[in-house]
Amino acid sequence: MDLDALKQELNQRLATDHAVRSGSDLGALLKGKTSSLLGKLKRSLLIEIGCCIFFILLMTYICVATNHWSLRLYFGTFTVLMFAFGILLYYLYRRTLLLDQQATSIKKNLQDYVNLLQEFVKRYFQFTMALIPICITFSIVLSNADPIHIPEAEKLAVKLFTAKWQLHVFLVVYMLALAISVYYFTKWYLRKLYGKYLDELKKCIAELED
């Protein structure tokens, strides 16, 4: 029993449909929404670009409306950063558009998918990681240079910490813990979203190169 002997039988069985589709059925399918990863990626990029624009507008407003120069500097910097992030998102969106609608070889298609996804994951990770030192530096510098008094927070600090050094140690530990947890959370989250899928695609490429 080998493949060649069963060629005709297999061809016939495999071409069997579970539901007969007419021309109008096929026409109706063309109105549907794609569920491919590329389609999902495109939709999520568009949503993120929208969020980016919203935050740019919000932060610009705070920047103009506030009387504190520290807040102005903080939100001004993040407006610029958000703008840069928006450009990055748009670049990734353009790349997904280029990748779409291609009838290339299977190997080339897989390589394009992997390259795009890897770049997407890499840029996201880099941007998130870059935000950590920027946020920490800003919060330290600006809270010393232009302290904003919040009575409730000050009362709580007095209650919890008897000496000033204790407060400083707490803040250092808090920032370190925050940085480490953001680092691992981002890694875990990106791996959860695309890790398994990327591994599967890479396995297919390796198999073709074998």
Binding site: S35, S36, K40, A103, T104, I106, N109, L110, Y113, C204
Partner: peptide, 9 residues
């Protein structure tokens, strides 16, 4: 069809 099936999520 094959490209879509292989990269289907």
């Amino acid at each position: 069809a094959l490209n879509t099936a292989i990269t289907f999520f």
